[in-house]
Design a protein around this nucleic acid. Structure first.
Lengths: 208, 208
DNA sequence: TTTATCTTGTGAAATCGTTCACAAGCCTGC
DNA sequence: GCAGGCTTGTGAACGATTTCACAAGATAAA
């Protein structure tokens, strides 16, 4: 399959969320225009996004809410459960461990690591915090699919390197610093300070 | 000034971080190639990004670390302090309030709101949680520049609408649902579940 | 002063993503 | 079964962003 734009995949996630809402409301079919309105995009965009993966609609009718949900879940890999580890159980890591939104989508936190002795052994949301030094051994014994990095900036790259060495293929970085991974590893970064800076820029330049 | 791409502004934030690191290390000048290596981009990209705002380098030499830092801080609006309010003092909101990264960059949390009676009156990181019903009155008396939304999905749009009505011009949304604002308001969204879904997609499609 | 080397700044080209516009398909009502 | 009204799927046009490629400016050394 040819390469799909990141923006497309993001929008698919949005569409899925809308479809699930519609499903709950008992709506049976939906048009590209309706999905577009919910997501703040255009009907052409919706159709183009979906067209990369196949034909899901019926001309004149729209899309079956149930069928399209199912297809999107398959495409996005949400039909299986994903095992997640979090490194760093401080403010951010702790909040992530307790965040229920992950669990609802099939992402299960199975390991929590921290370097601070004080936290090791405490239980957060049912998971016991392990010593960060056991990272390699723990991941070897009980592997995970995705690792979340929630350590301080200056430790981030080193932790990422260790995680990559264990063979993990997907990393979500919350440290406010860009980290580098081999091209075989998928990396996403969430940088809240960066988002604030973008808003500051927008305010200063009253761009719209 | 013509429109600057969002991606450009994001990279400028990254460059600034690198420059500050270099400054601490005592480095005086840096080339576009060196900045590019740090940020995982190309030297042409760095030069093009900067060229939108002026000429900052010396041919043959590179950029003065100190001078470029200063220019970037001006461009990004980081020379002044920004007043921030957080709506929702639960897991996410609480973690955001305690997150020190904001403060370091000149973003100061001056109000914290929550709808749950149990939290109102408690103090988080020096800020007393106020009743969400006082949002309008509080923001009228002591305005802020930016509001962070950390309420549950189903309350997000309503809170955003109220915040917009008070005249706030920049909103950072952490609720895992797209919200809509008038075009006069700058909006950014951080959706952690979405990032995980993107990684799941990448794993399933072993795209690189 | 001249030469060799380095690096910027920037038009032009290439690539990537979005929007347009319309033929083709499906449904309903008559 | 046909007409009318919708809506999809998709090439083509467009617009935006990134990469290329090179002239021109700066430094240092001879």
């Amino acid at each position: 399959m040819k390469h799909i734009a990141e923006s497309t995949v993001r929008r698919l996630s949005d569409y899925l969320r809308f479809l699930e809402e519609l499903e709950q409301q008992g709506t049976r079919t939906v048009s590209s225009g309706e999905l577009a309105a919910l997501g703040g995009t255009t009907s052409a965009q919706v159709r183009k996004d979906l067209s990369f993966f196949g034909s899901f609609g019926k001309r004149g009718l729209g899309y079956s809410v149930a069928a399209l949900s199912k297809s999107l879940r398959e495409i996005l890999g949400l039909e299986r459960q994903w095992r997640v580890a979090i490194v760093g159980a401080g403010k951010i890591g702790g909040a992530l461990a307790r965040y229920s939104g992950f669990h609802q989508r099939g992402f299960h936190v199975v390991h929590l690591f921290d370097a601070a002795g004080a936290l090791v052994g405490t239980v957060i949301d049912g998971v016991t915090v392990k010593d960060e030094r056991t990272l390699e051994a723990t991941l070897a014994a009980e592997p995970v699919d995705i690792v979340l990095i929630a350590v301080p900036s200056d430790a981030a790259q080193a932790v990422v390197d260790r995680v990559v060495k264990t063979g993990v293929r997907a990393i979500l970085n919350f440290a406010p610093v860009p980290v580098h991974v081999p091209s075989t590893v998928s990396l996403r970064s969430v940088n809240m300070a960066l988002e604030l800076e973008f808003l500051a820029y927008a305010l200063v330049n009253h761009t719209r």
